[in-house]
Amino acid sequence: MQANLALRLARQTAFRRSLHLRGLATSTTANAAHIAAESSSSSSVSASSRDASLIPLSNVEAQWATLSGEEKTAVHEQVEVLQKKDWKLLSLDEKKAAYYVAFGPHGPRAPVSKPGDSLKIFAYTMALVGAAGILSIALRQFGGPPPKTMTTEWQEAENARAREMNINPITGVSSPDYKGKGFVH
C-alpha cells in the first residue's frame, strides 16, 4: 500500500516535470529557440566551470563509493542534463558516467562476491577436508588391531561350520551349487 502510494507520487512528479517541459516547449517558438540557444551556449561555459568545482565525470566509477549523498545527487543531475543533448555529441566518459550512475555495480547491483572469493572458499574447504582426514588417520593409530573374527581363517571356519549345520540350504551357503563367498568378507 505504502509502496504503491510512493510509486504513484513518483509518477506524478515525473508527469508534472514533463508537463513543465512541454509547457516550455509550447511557449512562443522563436522565444523558445532563443532561450535554447542561449542556454546551450551558456551551459557549455557554466558546465565547464561547474565541472571544475564539482565532480569530474571522467572517473565517476572510481569515485562513486567515496561520494556523499549530495554529491551523488549532483552527479545524477549533471548526467540528466547531459543526456538531453544529442547522444552523438557525448564523449565516451560522459556516456560511461551516464551508464554507471544508472546501472553500474553499486547499491542493489553490487556484486555479491569479490573476484578471489571462490578460490578462497575452495581452499578453505580443501583445508577442512584435509584436517578431517588427518584426524581420522591419527585416531586410527590409537586403535588396536582388527578383532580375530575378521581374519580369513576364522571366516572360512565359519563357512565350514555353516555347511555342517546346513544353514540356508536352498539359496545360501549350504545349497548344492553355491558360488558366493559365504561369511568371508
Binding site: E80, Q83, K84, W87, L90, K95, A98, Y99, V101, A102, F103
Partner: peptide, 9 residues
C-alpha cells in the same frame, strides 16, 4: 525520455 543509460541497457 532522454535516458542514454536505458538505451545501452
Amino acid at each position: 525520455v532522454n535516458d542514454y543509460a536505458t538505451a545501452v541497457r
